[in-house]
Design a protein around this nucleic acid. Structure first.
Length: 222
DNA sequence: CGTTAGCCCTGCTGGC
DNA sequence: TGCCAGCAGGGCTAAC
């Protein structure tokens, strides 16, 4: 079976070119399991993808996750909604600057806009902006030149590091074998309100940007 | 067109 | 201990 990803969507290739498209949102979990799915672990079970003698169980406490069949004929239109992939080689400082240019919305809000850049979530936006030393509320168009270069690099490094550490398990996230990620152990500002900044020793603050909890260091991020 | 607010949902946390 | 308000957030839609 062909398995791929676009932004935060997982794609499982079906017969005849159609795809099963999954999105885990915040609390979705895919668990590899034997068939039949044991009674323990059936809480919040939404979907079972059965293979020959094994299965993937899709659990989701909050029921925000989605699973839809995408016919091949509709695929190209469907994916047009998503912006660039930040881990592609073609995503660089120049490409980011084109997105930032002429937009006055807060830079963090732009990073979370999946129609511009696909795949950056709230955690990774906070951590990337801290790494780039850019304040989350800065108007996007003010972020240019050196700062845009720092941000492009920070986005790539943050995502790569999070993937290497198998993601962030603040609450419910586990991989398909039930293992927690470790990126949350390396958060420098996210969910660290009132704690000391690891760089300057100042105090990490919390605000809201686009309705999302946003953590930053006022001393480091300008 | 660009941008923002509200909604969906449930479990956990903090205050009393 | 129990109750309850508030919070967490990705993406869609409505509204400005």
């Amino acid at each position: 079976m062909n398995v791929s990803r676009r932004g935060k969507y997982l794609l499982l290739g079906l017969d005849k070119g159609d795809s099963l498209v999954l999105h885990l949102r915040m609390t979705g979990r895919l668990t590899a399991t034997r068939l039949p799915v044991p009674h323990t672990g059936r809480k919040h079970l939404r979907l079972v993808l059965a293979f020959d003698d094994e299965a993937l169980a899709f659990h989701d406490v909050r029921r925000f996750g989605t699973a839809t069949i995408l016919p091949e004929a509709e695929a190209s239109g469907y994916w047009k909604r998503l912006g660039v992939e930040p881990l592609e080689r073609t995503f660089n400082s120049r490409e980011l600057e084109k997105l930032l240019d002429d937009r006055k919305r807060p830079v963090k809000s732009l990073l979370l806009d999946q129609s511009l850049i696909a795949g950056i979530g709230n955690i990774y936006a906070d951590e990337a902006l801290f790494a780039a030393r850019i304040h989350p509320l800065r108007p996007a168009r003010e972020v240019a030149g050196n700062e845009a270069a720092r941000l492009a690099k920070a986005i790539k490094e943050t995502l790569r590091r999070a993937i290497r550490l198998q993601g962030s398990s603040i609450d419910t996230y586990r991989d398909s074998r039930g293992r927690a990620g470790r990126f949350q152990d390396t958060f420098r500002v996210h969910r660290r309100e009132d704690e000391p900044c690891p760089d300057c020793g100042g105090t990490v603050k919390k605000t809201r940007v686009g309705g999302r909890g946003t953590y930053f260091c006022p001393g480091c991020q300008k």
